[in-house]
Simulated assay, not measured.
Amino acid sequence: MSDAAVSPAVTEDQAALSTPFVKCLVRLIRAQESYCLWEGKSDATLLADFIVTRRKRRAMPGMGYPDPDVLWRLDMFYTAVGLAIAERFRPVTSPIMEMKPERPSGPCFSGPGGWSFCPDVHRFGFETLRKLAEAGTKLVDDATAAIEAYRDVAPA
């Protein structure tokens, strides 16, 4: 197979799958699985639900409550950000996020159904694996820059 036969999207996906953040996300997803259903699946297959193309996004309703799978993916993404930060600096980090549509409360929620602070959370995803890798890496890089800037405060 010649180099010209490999599409740019394939090499772009391979590059995204090799980033430290995506590797951390894949490890986290594999660690969550307890029935060996994902054992033979590729990393790209495991991350397929994180990819929400424009066509998929348009097909989704404008508003709505996120299903548990979307909330799980959102949780996995931000937990992977915390773990990637911990891999760099070894502080214990975890996302402070819990989204429950049953009990709207506080200033972040408004309206009878809640969720108005992020009306399209049910559309959580990224256009490509590269964009997933870039978004996660940017969050990790920003957090580590803040930790380096404020070394005395970070352990507190």
Rank of each mutant, 00 (worst) to 15 (best):
S18G: 08
S18K: 02
T19Y: 01
T19E: 00
T19H: 01
P20R: 01
P20A: 00
P20I: 00
P20H: 00
F21M: 01
F21A: 02
F21S: 02
K23V: 06
L25K: 05
R27E: 14
L28R: 05
I29K: 07
R30P: 15
A31Y: 06
A31H: 10
Q32R: 09
E33Y: 02
E33W: 10
S34E: 12
Y35S: 12
Y35M: 09
L37G: 08
L37I: 12
W38T: 13
E39Q: 12
G40Q: 13
G40D: 13
G40K: 07
K41L: 15
K41D: 15
K41V: 12
K41T: 11
S42C: 07
S42L: 05
A44W: 09
T45C: 10
T45P: 01
L46F: 13
L46R: 08
L46P: 15
A48S: 15
D49L: 08
D49Y: 01
F50T: 10
I51Y: 03
I51F: 09
V52S: 13
V52N: 09
V52P: 14
T53K: 01
T53S: 15
R54N: 15
R54W: 10
R54L: 13
R54A: 14
R55N: 11
R55K: 11
R55P: 00
K56L: 09
R57G: 10
R58G: 09
R58A: 12
M60P: 10
G62H: 10
M63F: 12
M63H: 09
G64C: 04
Y65Q: 11
P66W: 02
P66H: 10
P68F: 00
D69M: 13
V70L: 04
W72D: 03
W72E: 06
W72S: 10
W72C: 04
W72Q: 10
W72Y: 03
L74C: 13
L74A: 07
D75H: 13
D75P: 05
M76S: 15
M76C: 15
Y78P: 05
Y78H: 15
T79Y: 13
T79C: 14
A80N: 08
V81Q: 09
G82K: 00
A84W: 01
E87A: 11
E87K: 04
E87D: 15
R88M: 02
R90M: 08
V92G: 05
T93G: 01
T93V: 12
T93I: 04
T93Y: 04
T93H: 05
P95V: 06
P95N: 09
I96C: 09
I96M: 13
M97N: 11
E98S: 12
E98P: 04
M99Q: 03
E102K: 09
R103Q: 09
R103K: 14
P104Y: 01
S105A: 14
G106M: 14
P107Y: 06
P107W: 04
G113V: 08
G114N: 02
G114Q: 10
W115K: 03
S116K: 04
S116F: 06
F117D: 06
C118K: 02
D120M: 08
H122S: 03
H122L: 06
F124W: 08
F124K: 02
F124R: 04
